[in-house]
Write a protein that binds this DNA or RNA. Structure first.
Lengths: 340, 340
DNA sequence: CTGAAAGCGCTTACAG
DNA sequence: CTGAAAGCGCTTACAG
């Protein structure tokens, strides 16, 4: 059976293809009665618009693109992305927009994918995650005039619209809380150092520690994987002037850190307080439950998608700030047993 | 600046559009010299094929579709999907195929998405995950003649090609191992009951327990979320005839179960042995590290993608079995302290 | 309100 | 080896 086209509908309805097109798209130019008849026929014969034909006639692709650049082993169990994607999807599917996803290995592949998608008119716009310092995607989308929204910022985004939240404020709140509990040796197990938000968090951490008299404020960089989170924790807990509190840049590393503390016979929170940046159900399910900086990540993704759709529609969207992560104290943080 | 088309290339090269098309697609019909000249011009002016135009001329969409139906809160932190997707991607991107992703709320939306994608010619084929008993997607892809590969089976797939692995064998191996350690009260915290693989695992579990003299072999169904895994574990550990070992249908629930045991003051593995179906880095990072049934999920996804691409190319692909999950014993399983 | 026609950017027989 | 042309399924001015 051949796929039905508007020509088939036109024939059945005894009108021109043009009339069918108007009827189907809710344009004026056909009478109400004709429109209803055409719609009924389209429904009956199971007609669907051929997306390529529409696109070729200048219509939008009704698709947005997302390229993710992280090693599969990290992506696999970073809840962040799937949560972000589910929020993006929630916004898109209501408007029958599709999501094109590609996982890439390096920066050049990432840029290449965006360039190709746009060249092939496969997407109407793209989302940019994991903004890096000197990120090559910013000049590329600017040059191509490819509608884009950065999930991140506000620094390093050039003139590209973006949605961001104030990681610095969240980190300051955390350090203040730990300092108030009496911690004077606080470490940070950070994510990839060339990401903007890692840099922002680092600055906020150092600043707050200096201001609050936290003498030992060590940061160890990782690739966000649980393995490196565990290794960093072992290093921290094996050195002298062991920290009494550690802030992790994601939940997976925080859980790995908890595992290391338990393996080394340290009690949490007695000997070590733990805070996770980003709260996932896992943080509540381990024992003790982890104090975490909670954001509504699906909502963040949905906001980004809305902004991108607006940008695609030609609106100027600029910079939008999403809610700051909230500190949710749980059982993994307490006064240090022996304040120094 | 207008987007370059083959007409621009033809003009510059002083040949016809047809010749350009042949040259660009590696077809015969142009001399080597002309081909090289055309390729050079295309490169120089930054030409990209307009995917819609190609698709309209009967070419493939070079895209495969995947609709995922699970609540966002589960998707978010089930490593399985992201790992599967990264494996699929690895196979696709080498051949410049794109992945269309949509997260849907229910079965009808899922079928609707596949129907629409196919009607709109947006995808050349689809992957079907999370096969359910009486899954409506099977008759739909069959009717539409939409190339499809089920990630699952071999039961309940009708005539649709599929890749599967032998969950039953993996579960039997696990029960035998636990029984050999001396466990006689083994429980199972299962995933969604209407999934085929849940049913297969359930049958294997009951069969193995009966055969091996495991008197208490209780199964509790969940939605795969950590919350429900924790709740099920509390129920199991609060009842009389408490199990001495629990097998969880995913790693997230296993970690939640470990948390509950610790919260209730039970030692793992002394009072309770824990096994996770599917191994993620998290299983190694918690303390004690969890015994797990490990599969190479990216490889599984890559295999599924390869089969789908073959099906799209018109080959008959049938049923392919992937490697059976391997039991990786770690610190969370041991002889029960007091054998009954 | 409706019809006939051009055009989007490719591919592909069909002639030369 | 190359050119001219039709066609894929839509949309959209342009006439009536």
């Amino acid at each position: 059976m051949k796929r039905p086209t508007i020509a088939d509908i036109a024939q059945r309805a005894g009108v021109s293809k043009g009339a069918v097109s108007y009827a189907l798209n809710g344009q004026r130019g056909v009478s109400e009665a004709t429109r209803r008849r055409i719609l009924a026929i389209a429904e009956e014969i199971g007609w669907n618009p051929h997306s390529a034909a529409r696109a070729l006639s200048g219509a939008a692709a009704d698709t947005i693109g997302l390229a993710l650049r992280r090693p599969a082993r990290v992506l696999g169990f970073e809840p962040f992305y799937m949560e972000l994607i589910s929020g993006v999807e929630a916004e898109l599917s209501g408007r029958s927009y599709a999501l094109m996803l590609q996982i890439v290995a390096d920066a050049s592949a990432e840029v290449e994918v965006y360039r190709r998608w746009w060249g092939e008119r496969r997407v109407d716009g793209v989302l940019i995650c994991d903004l890096r310092v000197g990120d090559p995607r910013i000049p590329v989308v600017t040059d191509l005039r490819l509608p884009a929204v950065v999930v991140g910022g506000p620094e390093g985004v050039g003139d590209v619209p973006h949605v961001w939240n104030d990681d610095a404020a969240a980190l300051v709140e955390t350090v203040e809380y730990l300092a108030a509990l009496g911690h004077r040796r606080i470490a940070r197990v950070a994510g990839l150092p060339d990401l903007w938000h890692t840099r922002v968090r680092a600055g906020a951490f150092q600043g707050a520690c200096a201001r609050l008299g936290v003498r030992h404020a060590l940061t160890i960089g990782t690739d966000y994987s649980g393995e490196e989170g565990a290794r960093a924790t072992r290093r921290l807990l094996s050195g002298e002037a062991r920290p009494t509190a550690v802030i992790y840049d994601n939940d997976v590393m925080a859980i790995a850190g908890l595992g290391v503390a338990q393996e080394m016979g340290l009690s949490v929170p007695g000997d070590l307080s733990i805070v996770a940046f980003d709260d996932s159900p896992l943080c509540r399910l381990v024992h003790p439950a982890l104090t975490a900086l909670a954001r509504d990540i699906p909502a963040y993704g949905a906001l980004a998608a809305r902004q991108l759709l607006a940008a695609v529609a030609g609106q100027s969207v600029g910079s939008v700030q999403d809610a700051t992560a909230k500190l949710v104290p749980r059982a993994s943080t307490a006064r240090p047993v022996s304040s120094t």
